[in-house]
Design a protein around this nucleic acid. Structure first.
Lengths: 354, 354
DNA sequence: TTTTAGCACTCTAACGCTTAGAGTGCTAAA
DNA sequence: TTTAGCACTCTAAGCGTTAGAGTGCTAAAA
C-alpha cells in the first residue's frame, strides 16, 4: 500500500468526516470553506485527484465531488482513526446501568444492545454468551406435576438451560433428587463427548434423561447463537442511503436472516482490527448483502468458557471512532461483569436486599 | 349502518379483493373484465358511486378508480368475510411441526411467529404466555458455585423463571434442598400477595430468598409481556405502500417500540371480532402510527392461568380471510398444546426418546 | 517546484411543458 | 333498469431546457 503525504491523510480524513455527516459527494470548495483550510480549492483538487488515483476516493460522475471508497475507509480505519475512549461521565453512567441489573445475563445483553444503538446512532446486535465447549457444572431434576419434570443444566460458563420433559411414568421428588446428585457427580466437568462416553454406566430413567441432555447440548452447540438482540434499527433506516424501498428491504433481510449474522460472527477474524475490535467494511467482498454496510464487532465473556458477540451495524459512512470505542468499552465491561459473577473469590457483589 | 344490496356487497368484495392484490385504485372496466361480470362497466360505475356515497370507497382523485376506505374494510370484515378454515393438509403439516418440538414453549412461540408470517404473507408477532395472576407451583434452590445459587420458579401456568442469586455466605446443597422443600410447601398455590402475607413466618436465608422471589414476580407481573417474537418483516416492507423511506421507517417504529404493541395487546377488546379473533383496521382512530396498517389479533393459552397473544400485522389491504383463519387455527392449536402439557390426566404425550 | 487564479467543460437535478390514457359522470337510448 | 356514447378530468410519463456545482487543465504567481 502506497504511503500518503501528511496533507493527503488530513484531506482523506476530512472527506470521510464530511461525507459521514452530509452523505453527499464532497467537493474541493466545500472542504476549504467548511474546514477553513489554509490552501486554495485548486490545491485541494490536486490532492483529491491523487487520492482518487490511489483508489481511496471515487467520483459518482465526472462533475461531482468525491466519495470515499471501501479502500478509503479501510485505510482510514486502520491508520487514521485513533479510537478515543468514551468520556468518563458516559462510561460511569453506562457502568451504573449495568450494575443496576446485577447478575441477570439476559438483561445485560438487552441493555448492551440498547446502549450500543444509542451511542453509535446505528443498529446494534448482541448475542448472549455462548459456551465455547459446554461443560456441565450442575444438573438438577425437579418434579413439577404428574409425569412432568424440569431439567435444569448449569454450565461452567454460568449459562443455564432448562426444559420440561415428560416421563413415561410418574416419579417423586425423592427419586429425582437422588438422580440429580448421581448424575451431577458422574458428569461434572464433562463436555458432550465425554458425557456420551460415560453414558454406558447408566440405565433406566437416568439413561433417558441423560440421552436427552446430550441431545440438547449437541443442538445448542451446533447452533452458534440462539437469539440475537438488536436495537436501533430505525436509526439506520432513516439514513439517506436507505431511502429507496429496495435498499430498506435488503437491509431488513440482513437482520431477519440470522444465518448471515451467525456466519459473520463465526468469521470475525476477517477484516480490519482496532484494539481487539473487528471492523468489516462493505461486506469485504464476501457478503454481497452488506455492500453498503459496515460492521464493527467485538466479543465479550470468558475466553475458552463462554463468549458472546456484540456489534454495530451501520451505513459504510458511519462514525467508526464512536462505534469502535463504544464496542470496546462494552466488551470490556461485560467481560468484567461476567468474570465477577463467576469467581469464588468475588468479594464485590452480594445478594442482600434493600 | 345502511344496508347494501346484494350486488353492492359483491362489488365491494371484488374491489377489496382486486385492490388487495394490485394495490392500485380499481376502475369499473377492470372489475368487469377481470371478474367477467354479467353487466356493463356503466352499471358497475353506478354501484361504485353508491358505495362511495356510503363511505365504503373513495377516489384518490376525480379520474381515478376506487380504493376501499377503513369503513369499507370494516364492513367487509364484519359481514362479508366468511373466514374459511385452512386446508386440511396445511393444518396437519402445521400441527406436525408443533408436535415435533414437544413441550418447549419458547420454540412453540417462535414457530408460531414463523408459520403466521408465512401463511399470512405479512409480519407476525407472538408473545410468550404470560401468567395472568402468577401462582407458585414449585420452587427449587440449586447450589452452583461458592455463594451463588440458582433459584428456579415453576409457575402454575407451566412458565419457568430462573435467576442467579449471590448469597452473603456459602451454603451447601443439603441446606438448600431443605429450604426448597420448606418454601415450596409454604407457598404452593400462592400468588404474590399471599406470599407477602406468609412471609412473616420466615427468617434468615429463606426470608432473603423469598423477598427476592416476590420482587421478581412483581416485576414480571407489572410488565405485561417481555419478548415479542416477530417474523416476516420483509414481507411487509416489500409492499408498495411502504415504498417511501418515510413509511418504511414509521413501520419499523411500530415494531421497535414495544410499548405500542403492549398497549394494543392489552386493549384487544377494541375493534372488530371474527370468531374470537380481533381485527383492528387502520389504527381505529386511536393509534396514529397504524393508520396504514391492520392488525389481526388472537390469544392462546389457558384463560385465567396463562395466556399469550398472537397476531398478524400487515397493510390495510391485507388478506383478512387468510390472516383470520390462520390466527384462529394457531390460537386453538397452541391452547390445546398448552392444556395437554399441563394436565395430569394427559395420556397423549410421552417423553420417550427414539 | 509548488500553489493558485481563471476558464472551458461536463453532468445532474430540477423545472416546466406536453401528451397519452385511464377513468369518471352524465345523458339519452334500449 | 341497464347500457352505449361522449365530454371531461387528472395523473404519470416523457422530453427539452437550464442553473449550478464541480471538475481538470493551463498559465501565471510565489
Amino acid at each position: 500500500m502506497t504511503e500518503l503525504s501528511e496533507r493527503q491523510k488530513i484531506i482523506l480524513s476530512l472527506v470521510i468526516h464530511e461525507y459521514s455527516s452530509t452523505a453527499t459527494p464532497v467537493g474541493s470548495h466545500a472542504l476549504v470553506s467548511h474546514y477553513k483550510l489554509d490552501m486554495s480549492s485548486a490545491t485541494v483538487r490536486n490532492e483529491l485527484a491523487a487520492l482518487t488515483d490511489h483508489g481511496f476516493l471515487r467520483q459518482p460522475h465526472t462533475s461531482a465531488g468525491r466519495v470515499p471508497t471501501e479502500e478509503g475507509y479501510r485505510y482510514f480505519v486502520s491508520r487514521l482513526t485513533r479510537a478515543s475512549d468514551l468520556p468518563d461521565t458516559t462510561r460511569r453512567t453506562i457502568s451504573h446501568q449495568f450494575y443496576q441489573m446485577r447478575n441477570d445475563v439476559e438483561q445485560w445483553v438487552r441493555l448492551a444492545a440498547s446502549v450500543l444503538a444509542y451511542q453509535s446512532r446505528a443498529a446494534s446486535l448482541v448475542t448472549p454468551p455462548h459456551p465455547e465447549h459446554s461443560r456441565l457444572k450442575h444438573l438438577e431434576l425437579i418434579a413439577t406435576r404428574g409425569r412432568q419434570i424440569l431439567v435444569v443444566l448449569v454450565m461452567l460458563g454460568g449459562e443455564v438451560r432448562q426444559r420440561l420433559f415428560t416421563l413415561v411414568e410418574p416419579v417423586n421428588q425423592e427419586q429425582l433428587s437422588q438422580s440429580s446428585e448421581r448424575l451431577t457427580q458422574l458428569f461434572q466437568g464433562a463436555d458432550v463427548n465425554e458425557m456420551r462416553a460415560r453414558l454406558a454406566q447408566l440405565q433406566g430413567l437416568d439413561a433417558d434423561v441423560v440421552q436427552w441432555v446430550i441431545d440438547d447440548l449437541l443442538a445448542a452447540d451446533a447452533i452458534p447463537t440462539g437469539e440475537v438482540y438488536m436495537d436501533g434499527l430505525t436509526n439506520v433506516l432513516s439514513e439517506p442511503e436507505f431511502t429507496g424501498s429496495e435498499e430498506a428491504r435488503k437491509s431488513l433481510r440482513i437482520i431477519e436472516e440470522r444465518s448471515l449474522l451467525q456466519d459473520l460472527v463465526a468469521r470475525t477474524s476477517a477484516g480490519n482490527t482496532q484494539g481487539g475490535v473487528q471492523v468489516l467494511i462493505g461486506g469485504e467482498g464476501t457478503w454481497d448483502e452488506l455492500r453498503q454496510w459496515s460492521l464493527v464487532l467485538g466479543s465479550y465473556g470468558m475466553p475458552g468458557l463462554s463468549t458472546g458477540t456484540l456489534g454495530v451495524l451501520g451505513p459504510m459512512r458511519m462514525s467508526y471512532g464512536r462505534a469502535i470505542s463504544t464496542v470496546r468499552f462494552l466488551s470490556g465491561l461485560m467481560s468484567d461483569l461476567m468474570a465477577e459473577t463467576n469467581l469464588d473469590e468475588n468479594s464485590a457483589s452480594t445478594g442482600e436486599m434493600n
